[in-house]
Write a protein that binds this DNA or RNA. Sequence first.
DNA 1: TTGTATGCGTTATCAG
DNA 2: CTGATAACGCATACAA
Lengths: 338, 338
Amino acid sequence: MRDRATASTVPTLIDIARETRTSVSTVSRVLAGGAPAQRISRATRDKVIEAARRLGYRPNLLARSLRTRRSNTVALLVSDIANPWFGQIASLVEQNLHRHGYSLMLCNSGEDAEVEAEYLRLLPQKGIDGLIVVPLVRTKKALYDLFPAKLPVVVLDRPIPGVVTTVYSDQDQQSKLLCDTLMRVGVKEVALVAGPQHVVTHRRRAEYASQCFRIVSTHEGPAQKETGRQAFIKFMELPQPPHAVVCTNNFLAQGLIDSIEHAENPPIVGSFDEIPMMHLLPLPIVCSVQDVPMLAEGCVRQLLPQLRGDTAWKPEPIVPDSRAVTNLAFQKLGGSQR
Amino acid sequence: MRDRATASTVPTLIDIARETRTSVSTVSRVLAGGAPAQRISRATRDKVIEAARRLGYRPNLLARSLRTRRSNTVALLVSDIANPWFGQIASLVEQNLHRHGYSLMLCNSGEDAEVEAEYLRLLPQKGIDGLIVVPLVRTKKALYDLFPAKLPVVVLDRPIPGVVTTVYSDQDQQSKLLCDTLMRVGVKEVALVAGPQHVVTHRRRAEYASQCFRIVSTHEGPAQKETGRQAFIKFMELPQPPHAVVCTNNFLAQGLIDSIEHAENPPIVGSFDEIPMMHLLPLPIVCSVQDVPMLAEGCVRQLLPQLRGDTAWKPEPIVPDSRAVTNLAFQKLGGSQR
DNA sequence: TTGTATGCGTTATCAG
DNA sequence: CTGATAACGCATACAA
């Protein structure tokens, strides 16, 4: 037995007010809950709540956000959601935020500066409360040129000079871990598969490797499997195929390994982050893996105080340590541990 | 030389109107572009555009959406974004939609019915124009109980009876491909690692395998790597370790393979979708892989006509074929091809 | 060609 | 304890 007035359209506060013979303000107060709701008589409160349920009322969050200037939505802008590493991060961030009443809007720049710029301009217009970003922009100025400086931001994975609300792995510690492990088994020279050098993470890792080893060949390209595959082809054409290869991330390494069909004399592979099923792979692998759960949690810990306008909060970069993991084939090489 | 009135707050149409000594409607028309903009004199048009740029005007999309009832935002609700398969899908869907002027809001139910319900209720309130969902709900009624039936929906990967705007792989074709390939190398009995049986995809795959093979042992659990690991432990405790294992998705298979440390007498593994670096792995693997790009594109092809209210459009499920891929170790087994 | 007025659904301010 | 009423920023029907 529906009221003819509410037919076929989503009910609003007005409908409930009419239904209960009260006013929109009263209804709003009741439904908002909390302090203002307590100042409403028990009778009308019940009446309103009952009507709301009966009509299947759902607040229009656009209208609410327009009015309150809060959306309870946070955006996570990653550089490549096809990369499982970001999938893990996204999943954990989502769970964390969800716990605090925020929903996550996950966006993908695809490592494209134009798309990133577009999102950085668009997201504030959509009324997000805050942003976690794996940036392509490299300076504070470039960032705040596109994105309102007032809005809470957390920079993930790729620190930007001057931005202190940031979460990333210590690249030197992480690189040292990898290179030390390689050196311990006698590696002196390596081929290098590098992601885009304008990305600080890839650049720093490549630089560190260059300081530790003689680089016999380098292949640079987008941080995707395909680049790793191309690199392998290139390396195989060298007069002397490399004894070891360092990749600046796991996606590159997977591509490289993927194109090794004949495991006659496979190279030692050093990589960053996890390589699935590495233990069974018949070539020596060492990975310097980041603390993903800590990174994800760090983002939320950096964001929440900003969202609630906690002025007492003193922001400070969160920089978890990484750890080295080797597979069985690597351990057989000799000088390795754990 | 800024107007004192616009200080420190984001400019709106009002600011531009004041600045140009015109009215909000004029400004709105100019900035909207298209037909109505053409009916404005060149002079004022330029004036308005100049002022908009000078003040750094950005339309408030919440207000616009509230008024127009369109947000140019589509949500993609997946069951587990940590699974790389969904990362691929998401990436491709994003690119496709972006091309058509829509931005994507990616949400993660984490295979949790409550979270899914929450999102199904929340997203319409946030004003999305349409939804692509990998559902946990199994009936049309349950879906439309939570989600307004008027809103465009595409069901991905897990068909729901009666919902015709859907994209999924033909489970029988896909399962047949896998089982045939296994049978061709003489497999008669298998152990089964199955995802949740209330999910149609996992259930159908498990059923099909049960029809083709004698199931010596089954391990069921969440479609995550950990379940695969547990399964392996369980299988190793059997009096007779299985000769072959079928996993109902790639994540399960990766977990299983990941825990095989000693490759003395590894099982043949049959799985669905891609397993990274499978060629080098020293155990026979066959995968029945779905056509991911086609699935992603299919979602968009199903969604766009609904979004633009194309009444002439006759919806029909999109059901791409899968293809079997074997690794080197499997091919050495004998009866294989390609 | 342009301006006025109204409404989208909420919340918030002010009376009473 | 409750009800008008005014924003929030934008789009649009209707005037002029």
